[in-house]
Design a protein around this nucleic acid. Structure first.
Lengths: 143, 143, 143, 143
DNA sequence: GTGGTCTAGACCACA
DNA sequence: GTGGTCTAGACCACA
């Protein structure tokens, strides 16, 4: 897992962790039955407090993505991939929808919106693997 | 001005006000030299705390979009439209960019992303005028 | 609200708070649109850390029982009573079911079980108001 | 012995083992003087860590239900059945009491509680022998 | 070793 | 004033 987390983001760290685990499971990078890193191990790796990782894991447990294996750690559930793919779809779609809805309601000319979207789609698709490893979920709320 | 504000949104109310004024000015709905509603009047209309409106106006003043006219209220500046168009462009572009960047980094298949974007673009473009008046800026944070 | 909380219970304090708010809403002791006590106020009253109360409130928010009113506090939602009645029913039923299921599977003679249940039902019904105020949700896990 | 253990239950595995042995002895399914399975054998059968079984046996020994027979294993004591019947009574009664106490304090209407209890009592009594063998102690904590 | 709960207290955004 | 996040560190149950 290539996790990276930013304290500067407006997205809370624990949510960043939740999103990254969700996407990793959806993509098959984390497989059912496998253990995810221990709270303490991931906290050390991300340089955050164990409580913060624990909170993310609790949210993932609540969603049914991981389940505790007492004394061993947290295990990816069998239904995790299906759940995470649904989550992924829902997250991506809602954010795209909101961004485009905002674009339209800003009354920016339709042509300009179309052009902008095509440009950004291309740009996003061209990210290098190195950049991807650096990626951090970031808020897109109207600053 | 057709302002509408939602307490349910994850976007702070003062930011919703800032965004709506910014877009209204960019679109020419608010003209240079015109006065915007008083803090108290807008607070009453939107059913929000006057402090909240004041904070929005403060931010708009900081950006040079409005300026105090002693004894009269806040006036839309002459450079407001240019400023707001730049702002609008920047806001829309950054949100679209972040949403698409997230889509790519979620490892959702590129075809699926392309399809989703086209669908959402069409959907957004089909909003009725009535719906537009109802529009409220909404967060696209990666929850 | 007559809240009471015990650190000795095997039920975490934040869950005790969640249960008591749930029951209070179900019973109509807390009404839709009203604010529940602030995190700090309830923490002081219960002699627990504000974080603990905050965690309970977050869980109640997640369930749709309360909603944040930014700057004001947490408000009981309109759907809260329906939600809490369902919750109450589900909690009570599952605990009764588990206790009786255990009784049967312990192979205690059916007559003895029936007698015991009747006795305990009567005993529970006879609690004084004073006792009720003292009540604390307690685990019934097989110690 | 028909032991069954569930990692999904909120009841710790060692407690599940303790309860099942206790009930088996109380019911006469395990007789004084008989040997219970070795730690290793039971651990293998239940697919749990030997430490977990060892902890359960330690607890049962502490209660005087089993005693070590050097070189042979753990033996059911002569006083075991009396002890376990007392234990059984105490466990069942306390869980029923807590469930009913919760029901009353939840302010669910008394009629509804009475009905619910009768329904659940009937339901519990109708379990098939096959189901009983499958039974796993389950928590009734006020989640 | 594993995760869960709690206190303590800082800091922040928002109204 | 309100709640939300985070670090820090203690303590506990469980395997």
């Amino acid at each position: 897992m290539l996790f990276r987390v930013s304290a500067d983001s407006t997205v809370p760290i624990y949510e960043q962790i939740v999103a990254q685990v969700t996407f990793a499971v959806a993509a098959g990078d984390l497989e059912p039955g496998g253990l995810i890193p221990s709270v303490r191990a991931l906290a050390e790796r991300l340089l955050v407090h164990p409580n913060t990782v624990a909170r993310a894991y609790q949210e993932l447990e609540r969603r049914g993505v991981v389940a505790p294996r007492p004394g061993l750690g947290m295990e990816v559930t069998r239904r995790a991939q299906a759940l995470c793919r649904r989550q992924r779809r829902q997250i991506v779609q809602s954010h795209v929808r909101e961004a485009l809805s905002e674009a339209v309601h800003s009354q920016m000319p339709p042509d300009e919106i179309g052009l902008l979207v095509r440009e950004e789609l291309q740009r996003a698709g061209q990210a290098h693997p190195a950049e991807e490893a650096q990626w951090v979920p970031s808020s897109t709320s109207a600053g």
